[in-house]
Every structure is written in structure tokens, then in C-alpha cells.
């Protein structure tokens, strides 16, 4: 028994878990923004991530470029899709209350899932750049997988850029103000619908990044969305709604749960962590 535990809780696993934390954080950050600002549970977020993964895969194949470079195309593309979606559909449904809005995103998720199935077939996909198998050796027989390190850096840069945008720009402040007080924000000249549309665009842009990371790290299918939605939700629950630093911590928890759970129980471990969190502290670890 002790030996089994020693095999699981190794330093190497801890390194992997921490590296994966960034990926899970960026997975959750789009969800947390929509939660905190638009006050919407976006059940289609998982499908958005998978859509991002497909876009990156296809573009990198078509142009024969490194998958990471596809972000130049996928981020603006997904941003626009998000803005349009929010402006023409979700803003309208939100007038009817939160439950219809929740069900509309649910409808979107099943539409997207089957649309991707039709467009891209049910085959397993994965992006395999040349550096996917290389490692950086550390003393003591430990090593850092290059791919995981790159994904961590991409995730952290994304979150940093997002944080700076929200803190330093007029639009970023307007979005934060809207999440605090809609009426006061509109008195400052903020168009709430526009703020929501931009927030959804940003969430979609982070989904593009998360999709790239997921598609480089694991194989994915058109039906993989649900799995990543629940993980994104888990990150939100642990970190607290709308909290970006919280998403980082949530990502770390899920990264470690994934690695310590191993190949067969990683997902189950994540779900159990999430259920316990929901039951004990649904408002998140970091909110008052």
C-alpha cells in the first residue's frame, strides 16, 4: 500500500501536476470571466475549447506551421465568434432570466458537438510538434517535459495579458465595473450589452488558447467538450467566480488531481474533488 502511494506521490508527478496547472487555469479562466461578469453559466465552454483545438489542428496542417503560431488566427477568430454570439443570441435570452440562458448555452453545446462531428469526423486528433517528446533533465533523475513547459508559459502569458487588459484599459475597467454594478456602470457611459459581448469574446479567445493546449497535450474528439467543461467548472468553483488568481490556484489543484489520479483515475479524482468542493464551499476557496 505504502509502495503504491510512494509510486504515485513522486516528485516527478508533482512537477507534471504543477506544469499542467497552467493549462487547467486557462481552461477555467474563460468560464470564470463569463460567470463573474455576464453572470451566465456557459455550458458550451467545453465545445468552444474543442472548437479551438480543431481550428488550430486544421490551420497548422493546412499552412504547415507550428501549432502555436495558429493562435494568431484562432484568437481573433474566436473573439469575433464570441462577440457575435453574445450580441445576437445570448443578450436577448438573458432578458428572460438566467434559466433560459443556461438552457440556450446547453442547446449551443449539443449543436456545436454534432456540427464538429459532421465537419471533422469522430476520429481522434492530436497535434504533434517536433518538441513533443523532448525533455529537459534535472538533477536527481527528474525531468521537465518541454511541451508541458511551453504550455505552462503560453497559459501564464495569456492570463497575464488578460489581467493587464482588465486592469489597465478603459474597456477592461468597464467590464470590471459592469460585474460590480450594472446601473452604476451604465451611468458612466458603459453599454452593458457591449461589455458583455466583449467579455464573451475574451472568454472565447481564452478558449482558443485552451483548445491549442488541450490539442497538443492530449488526443481529443468532437465529443470531448463535456469533460473539459466540467474541469473548467471545477477550476471556477475552487477559485471562486470571476477570480483570475483563483483560477490559477484551481488549475493547480486540478493539475495535481489529474496526475496523482493517474491514467485511469485522473478524471474520477478531478470529479470527486469538484463534488466535495461543491458540497463544502460552493462559493469558492477565495471569496468571502
Amino acid at each position: 500500500m505504502l509502495e503504491v502511494l510512494q509510486n504515485i506521490f513522486t516528485a516527478q508527478n508533482a512537477i507534471s501536476g504543477i506544469l499542467l496547472g497552467g493549462l487547467f487555469a486557462v481552461l477555467g479562466v474563460g468560464m470564470t470571466i463569463i460567470f463573474g461578469i455576464v453572470k451566465l453559466t456557459n455550458l458550451a465552454h467545453g465545445e468552444f475549447v474543442i472548437l479551438g483545438a480543431f481550428c488550430s489542428t486544421l490551420i497548422s496542417q493546412a499552412l504547415d506551421i507550428d501549432p502555436i503560431l495558429t493562435l494568431i488566427i484562432t484568437i481573433p477568430l474566436m473573439f469575433i465568434i464570441g462577440m457575435v454570439l453574445q450580441s445576437v443570441l445570448i443578450n436577448r435570452v438573458m432578458l428572460q432570466g438566467s434559466e433560459p440562458a443556461l438552457l440556450v448555452t446547453f442547446g449551443l453545446s449539443i449543436i456545436l458537438q454534432d456540427a464538429m462531428l459532421l465537419l471533422f469526423s469522430a476520429d481522434a486528433r492530436k497535434m504533434n510538434p517536433s518538441y513533443a517528446q523532448s525533455n529537459i533533465s534535472l538533477p536527481g533523475g527528474l525531468y521537465i517535459p518541454v511541451l508541458d513547459l511551453i504550455l505552462l508559459i503560453i497559459s501564464l502569458v495569456t492570463i497575464l495579458v488578460l489581467t493587464l487588459f482588465l486592469r489597465r484599459t478603459y474597456m477592461g475597467r468597464a467590464i470590471r465595473a459592469t460585474s460590480d454594478d450594472i446601473v452604476a456602470a451604465s451611468l458612466m457611459g458603459v453599454s452593458i450589452k457591449k461589455a458583455y459581448a466583449v467579455a464573451m469574446g475574451i472568454a472565447m479567445a481564452t478558449a482558443a488558447v485552451a483548445g491549442l493546449c488541450v490539442g497538443m497535450r492530449w488526443t481529443f474528439y468532437p465529443s470531448s467538450g463535456g469533460e473539459y467543461l466540467l474541469r473548467a467548472f471545477g477550476v471556477v468553483v475552487i477559485g471562486g467566480m470571476g477570480s483570475i488568481p483563483g483560477a490559477l490556484v484551481g488549475g493547480l489543484v486540478f493539475g495535481l488531481a489529474q496526475v496523482f489520479g493517474g491514467a485511469s483515475y485522473g478524471l474520477l479524482a478531478s470529479y470527486v474533488v469538484l463534488i466535495i468542493m461543491l458540497a463544502v464551499r460552493p462559493q469558492g476557496l477565495f471569496s468571502k
Binding site: 443570441l89 436577448r92 435570452v93 440556450v104 442547446g107 449551443l108 449539443i110 449543436i111 454534432d114 459532421l118
Partner: peptide, 14 residues
């Protein structure tokens, strides 16, 4: 089928 069902559901909600 799911695409059509999803679209119908969204239109009905709207």
C-alpha cells in the same frame, strides 16, 4: 438530429 433539435430548442426559448 442534435443540430436540428438544438436549433428548435433555442428558437422556442427565444
Amino acid at each position: 438530429s442534435n443540430i436540428i433539435l438544438g436549433l428548435i430548442a433555442i428558437l422556442v426559448i427565444l
